[in-house]
Amino acid sequence: MSEIEIKNLTKIFEIKGHKVTALNDINLSIEKGDIFGIIGMSGAGKSTLVRSINYLEKPTNGTVYIDDVDLSLLSERELRIKRREIGMIFQNFNLLEQKNVLDNICFPLEIAGVKKKEARKRAKELLKTVNLTDKEKAYPSQLSGGQKQRVAIARALASKPNILLCDEATSALDPQTTDSILRLLKEINETLGITIIIITHQMSVVTQVCKNVAIIDNGNLAEVGSVDEIFENPSSDAARELLSGKEITYKPVESLNTKRKIRIVFKENSAYEPVISNMILKFKTPVNILKADTKNVGGKARGEMVLALPEEEGIAEDIIEYLKANGLAVSEISEEI
């Protein structure tokens, strides 16, 4: 079995007789050593899902297995001990404001009953890992957001977990700091072999570090697969919507949206070939480029472009054929860009 097995997980919240299905029959397997993204729009159920993995949220139905242990069968005490194997970081860092950096990192060890001297030694090692050795006596209020998240990561690693859960860990950070935190997470995954689960609503976070991804839409698992696969060939509406980068909204020119639109993804080599200009030369019709972007997907450069096709049906079909023949992934989209 995989390291994390989520089986038929359903969570229904009941507020004053009103029922909200936050998660609906989710099945997921996450392998050891993976960096697994869980992405979805706000309110999709991502936080509920990640909180179910350490059983902070008890499922209404279904269960979670961690290393073949069914969490639903554990007592409160056993569950608390199990949670030490699962680190967690948050959007708002959630550091203890009245404790300095070193004591914050020691905190999970203090809870686990580790001797103070030993805990301090481990905390100092971890400060090296997250590159913050000069801040051990500082208080959280004296740190920047990125530094706070580094402390939170060190704290989450203190009890030597096998799994690290990140709930919107970069959402409160600027793009540069986000990059550096994501790089740190990747490094931790590679050097310590910790399985990392990243919850986010930003596709860029997923494409930057995740190997696999699950897309959650309104409490349902819309799609799951390798980031490569889904980036190239999204099969669900939710995936396409997230890929089209709705978070960056700008009003399209009305007439452009009346045409058929396709999204093409350039693979490694083809990104350097002038496919589009060749295509225009060949068909002698102009196409409108609605959006063009390059992304770093799992360390490989990927280009992404959205084109509005000419009105004539014949030519539109030919263009699609031509692009496919040139090794590009092509999918037709209906969303507004």
């Binding site: 001990i81 949670r83 708002n92 959630n94 203890l96 905190f107």
Partner: peptide
């Protein structure tokens, strides 16, 4: 006290008594 901090302590495996006295 920020509920997020309490949540973090729970995620670390703290018991309710530990949360009361240490958080």
């Amino acid at each position: 006290v920020d509920t997020g901090v309490i949540e973090a302590a729970k995620a670390m495996g703290a018991s309710n008594l530990q949360i009361i006295f240490k958080v």
